Computed example of a mutant assay.
Amino acid sequence: MIQINGTIKLGRTIDAATQKAMVEMVRASRAEDGCLDYTFARDMADPDTLVLFERWRDRAALEAHGRSAHMAEFQKVMAANPPASREIRIYETDDGQPLG
């Protein structure tokens, strides 16, 4: 399994159009073959920081996601609203086990 975790420090507060694009990106990504989880969330202590969490069946599914039409559209939105910084890492991992 492939897991992607990261933070994106926004260059400015999310406007309605950007938020709409993010919701569309999440929904379209979750519908992709091989997507196990795809989430954007705001950092509770810093609302201008997004937390990204993705899980993919394998690298092929992640690569297909990178070539998707909704990714191309989302990249246009993000290019118009460039982040101040980002820290995103990819991991190859197992399915994990329930905690507790």
Score class of each variant (00 low, 15 high):
T13W: 11
T13R: 13
I14N: 05
I14R: 07
A16Y: 12
A17V: 14
T18H: 13
T18K: 10
Q19H: 15
A21P: 10
A21N: 09
A21S: 13
E24G: 14
V26Q: 14
V26T: 14
R30P: 10
E32T: 03
E32N: 04
G34V: 04
C35K: 04
C35Q: 05
D37H: 12
D37Y: 11
Y38T: 01
Y38W: 03
T39G: 08
T39I: 08
F40P: 03
R42H: 10
D46V: 09
D46R: 13
D48W: 06
T49P: 05
T49R: 08
T49H: 04
T49L: 02
V51Q: 06
F53R: 12
R55T: 03
W56K: 01
W56V: 00
D58L: 03
R59N: 10
L62G: 02
A64R: 07
G66A: 09
R67E: 14
S68R: 01
A69V: 12
A69L: 14
E73N: 14
E73R: 15
E73Y: 11
F74H: 12
Q75P: 00
K76A: 15
K76C: 10
K76D: 15
A79C: 08
A80Y: 09
A80K: 14
A80N: 12
N81F: 07
N81T: 09
P82K: 07
P82V: 08
P83Y: 02
S85K: 02
R89I: 08
I90T: 13
Y91F: 13
Y91Q: 06
D94G: 07
D94T: 05
D95V: 11
D95I: 11
G96W: 02
